[in-house]
Design a protein around this nucleic acid. Structure first.
Length: 848
RNA sequence: GGGCGCUUAGCUCAGUUGGUAGAGCGCCGCCCUUACAAGGCGGUGGUCGGGGGUUCGAGUCCCUCAGCGCCCACCA
């Protein structure tokens, strides 16, 4: 094919031109006739579409794409689908804010319901189905925006294989996996104290917690001794939970309380009798060394409550407000107890605390002033108020949180997985080692995969929680709220001897932990599953190791007895230009589209691919400019080489300096290939880039005069052959990074897409002596410096130059004498053997 | 409290088996060289966080200290 180079190459318009071509040519379509060995499958993170687009969304996905493209060029068939994580609370919240509505499952469906144009001041309560419909509607819009961004970025995913975590395939896989875990006793339901978000009114899992330093105060409260026993003063940050107090606890070895264990004291304000107990978890150093146990102030209370077998005195409602009636206190309480409790009923935790402190002050049972402190408090990661603990029936998946040997099993799975970079495994290990509960998967929410379970109602209308009724797998996916259990009719729903549906949905992670199974067609397409599972690579961010990565390992272990993938590549964080962590609340989120338009996709990709694996990287427009400059350089260098070889044919590569340059390029190819093998795309880019500038600055300048020679000049043919070979290799080395300009310059002289071309191998090269190019390039650099120091043009003539260098390097230089004379515009070149390189030169008189 | 990572030129960062410190940006100077002036060429600039050790030789290995960031932890 004869090269066809535009007169004025440009980066403008390349994205639109080639994105359309790739789409039309199915350049990235997956060929499912390939065997498992020929396929490289990537379990790409489905982004949370209800979140905003930001540079963090770009960073990791580009890094993954460079690996995907290089593997494709190696000849592997890429199984590289893209999904959208759209179910779950994040979407519900977005819908609530976007439309100004609130789901009230007690309302009947209004068939004429339409959302308001703009959200009003007050949220409109709507039926569950209407709410879910709005969620479905909005995620479609959000997904379009993500797809547009990914396409602009040039991600080489197969757009015919998208999926969403609320889609039918996902629901079917999620429910099937649930039923199988239930059958194997890997899933179970239980009534137990649970961390609870009072705003979203749902249980949350350990993986969704985060600690926040929170202001609080130690309140010293007097508990009254009975039968002549002395009073005991305890310190608490949650005095409002006093009516929920069930015991005091101190360390068994604490001499201060040695005589008190087993005795009874009476609580302030209420006069409830509670025992003084010993437990090793009580810390003598903390507060007054003795604590009150309430049901429940924190997770330590839950441990004490369980291990000391204490009664339940619940005061906190699921809406975060004190229950209307006091708990069961026993008979022997203060007369004023009920009155005092009435003061708290209906108040939230903060209000109740304020009031109870006033009451305690009035009764002089508050000792001194509260002492302000800050301490870590558990929050739902998306929540704004501290979590409470309430008792409720929930579904759990076993994950080792309550089983040491299972925990060991998952640690072993983590060790089997190949981590890039390797140290990221530490995060996995410390998470698994710290698990203390099973995985709570049920959520009291609406937009999610329903738990596929019904319960029979007895003659009194009470649900039989221990006898769930399950659908057969061929019915999946189902919604138990509208579908019926086998053998029941619709009119039996909710009536005695009938049935009710499980009202909950699964946590979004309960579904997204199955992405390897969902995309590979587990249970739906056995042929595809056999060709793609277990998958090769899981790329993802570090923040979801404890959720997505760990959960996915749990599911694959239980269902398939294997790892879900062989390798995982963990990307770093994206920081704002001032190296601060980006977050919506700080308002420093950088959105990608303006940067893409300003610098171009290849420049953005260059920035992302420059970030080392697992290394936090700042948004850096300077780096994007460097990427753009590199792209322009590739255009121009390609234009030059193709211009030369279109004038006269490439010949056999015979000249020592030509072979030497190719030798250096071969070394670079090996380095790039090795780096990619280890998932180090950044190193591959850096090596390719370093050689490319060396090639442009030193080699092209050196041989261009010779390359212009006639068709029958062997030296000219050799230069053209070397230039042509090097250009082809360099274009392909850059192709995984600079996908648009790479395709453009390839199209000028080659058939087919560069992204389906072969990754360079050493068979394309000829042998050469590395010293020739090295010594010559060094000498040319010194000659350029002479001219630069003399402040003359690089075209200025040198009448005589003397190059001093070692004997072996001079011998190498001698082999390129013709090129040195031409490139340096040197009339007479002398050489002197010495210790190191030095150049002296006499410049021609410009007036002569 | 436990763990991981980072600390190299003014800035952002490379530096993979230990062998005379690198890139880009910035800055200074030069060059309109027919691939490239929204370019190119040349240059300035670092006791590689502090201390100790191993070695003929340490940015690179070991110990220790400090600062920054992150992860985990039952956080009255």
């Amino acid at each position: 094919m004869s090269p066809s180079v535009p007169a004025k190459p440009t980066l403008d318009g390349l994205e639109a031109k080639w994105a359309a071509r790739w789409d039309a040519d199915h350049t990235y379509s997956f060929d499912r006739t390939k065997t498992r060995e020929q396929i490289f499958s990537i379990d790409t993170p489905p982004p949370t579409v209800s979140g905003s687009l930001h540079m963090g969304s770009v960073f990791g996905y580009v890094q993954t794409d460079t690996i995907a493209r290089q593997r494709r060029m190696l000849g592997l068939e890429l199984f590289y689908p893209m999904g959208w994580d759209d179910n779950g609370l994040a979407t519900e919240r977005r819908v609530q804010n976007y439309y100004g509505v609130r789901c009230d499952p007690s309302l009947p469906v209004d068939p004429d319901f339409a959302p308001p144009e703009k959200p009003g001041d007050r949220e409109i309560p709507i039926a569950r189905q209407s709410f879910v419909d709005l969620c479905d509607r909005l995620v479609v819009e959000d997904e379009k925006k993500f797809e547009e961004l990914w396409r602009t970025l040039g991600l080489s995913v197969d757009w015919a294989m998208t999926y969403s975590t609320i889609g039918e395939r996902s629901r079917r896989a999620s429910q099937r996996a649930f039923l199988r875990m239930l059958a194997r006793d890997e899933a179970y339901s239980a009534e137990a104290p649970t961390l609870w978000d009072v705003d979203d009114r749902t249980a949350v899992a350990q993986a969704e917690l985060e600690d926040r330093e929170t202001n609080a105060a130690y309140h010293s409260l007097t508990f009254h001794g009975v039968d002549g026993g002395e009073n005991i003063v305890i310190e608490t940050t949650r005095p409002e939970l006093l009516p929920a107090c069930v015991a005091l606890v101190a360390h068994p070895d604490d001499a201060r309380f040695a005589g008190r264990f087993g005795q009874t004291v009476r609580t302030p304000l209420f006069g409830v009798s509670v025992p003084v107990l010993a437990h090793p978890l009580a810390d003598p150093e903390k507060g007054s060394g003795i604590a009150m146990i309430c049901t429940f102030g924190d997770t330590t209370d839950v441990v004490w409550w369980r291990e000391l077998q204490l009664p339940l005195r619940n005061v906190m409602g699921r809406d975060g407000r004190f229950l209307p009636n006091p708990p069961e206190w026993g008979t022997d309480v203060d007369d004023a107890a009920g009155t005092h409790y009435e003061e708290l009923a209906g108040k939230n935790a903060k209000q109740a605390q304020r009031r109870i402190v006033e009451l305690l002050a009035e009764t002089r049972e508050l000792v001194g002033e509260p002492k302000p402190i800050t301490h870590p408090v558990k929050f739902y990661e998306r929540g704004s108020r501290p979590l409470e603990i309430v008792t409720s029936r929930q579904w759990y998946f076993r994950n080792g949180g309550r089983d040491q040997s299972l925990r060991e099993t998952f640690l072993q799975r983590g060790a089997e997985l190949r981590w890039h970079p390797a140290h990221m495994r530490q995060r996995y290990d410390s998470w698994v080692e710290g698990l203390n509960t099973d995985w709570l998967v049920s959520r009291q929410r609406f937009f999610g995969v329903p738990i596929p379970v019904w319960y029979p109602l007895d003659a009194a209308g009470e649900p039989q929680w221990d006898a769930p009724m399950l659908p057969s797998e061929d019915r999946l996916p189902i919604d138990p709220a509208s579908d019926l259990p086998e053998g029941f009719s619709a009119d039996q729903r909710g009536v005695p001897t009938g049935f009710i549906a499980d009202a909950d949905v699964m946590d979004t992670w309960a579904t997204s932990s199955l992405t390897p199974q969902i995309v590979t067609g587990w249970g739906d397409d056995d042929d595809l599953f056999g060709r793609t599972f277990p998958m090769d690579l899981r790329p993802q961010g570090p923040e979801i190791i404890r959720t997505w990565l760990f959960d996915t390992i749990v599911r694959a272990h239980f269902e398939h007895g294997t790892l879900p993938w062989r390798d995982t590549a963990i990307n770093g964080w994206v920081l704002d230009p001032d190296r601060k962590k980006m977050s919506k609340s700080k308002g420093n989120v950088v959105t990608p589209m303006p940067l893409l338009e300003k610098h171009g996709s290849d420049a953005i990709r260059y920035w992302a691919a420059s970030g080392r694996p697992g290394t936090d990287t700042a948004v850096d427009e300077g780096q994007m400019k460097v990427g753009r400059r590199l792209s322009i350089k590739l255009l121009n260098a390609s234009k030059f080489v193709l211009g030369v070889i279109s004038e006269a044919p490439a010949g056999e590569i015979t000249e020592p300096v030509d072979r030497s340059m190719l030798h250096a390029l071969a070394v670079t190819v090996t380095e790039c290939t090795d780096a990619f093998e280890k998932y180090d795309y950044a190193r591959a880019l850096e090596r390719a880039e370093r050689f490319f500038w060396h090639f442009c600055d030193d080699y092209v300048e050196l041989v261009k005069h010779r390359a212009y020679g006639a068709a029958d000049d062997p030296g000219a043919g050799s230069a053209r052959g070397a230039l042509s070979t090097a250009l082809s290799v360099l274009q392909r080395l850059f192709a995984p990074f600079l996908v648009y300009v790479g395709e453009e310059v390839w199209s000028w002289w080659q058939e087919g897409s560069i992204h389906r071309s072969e990754w360079p191998t050493l068979t394309e090269f000829v042998e050469g002596d590395p010293l020739v190019f090295a010594a010559t390039a060094a000498a040319m650099g010194a000659i350029r410096k002479v001219k630069s120091d003399a402040k003359v043009s690089m075209r200025a003539e040198i009448t005589q130059a003397t190059v001093t260098d070692t004997e072996v390097r001079l011998a190498a230089l001698e082999l390129a004498r013709r090129d040195v004379l031409a490139a340096g515009v040197i009339t007479q070149l002398d050489t002197v053997v010495g210790d190191a390189l030095a150049v002296t030169a006499t410049l021609a008189d410009p007036r002569a």
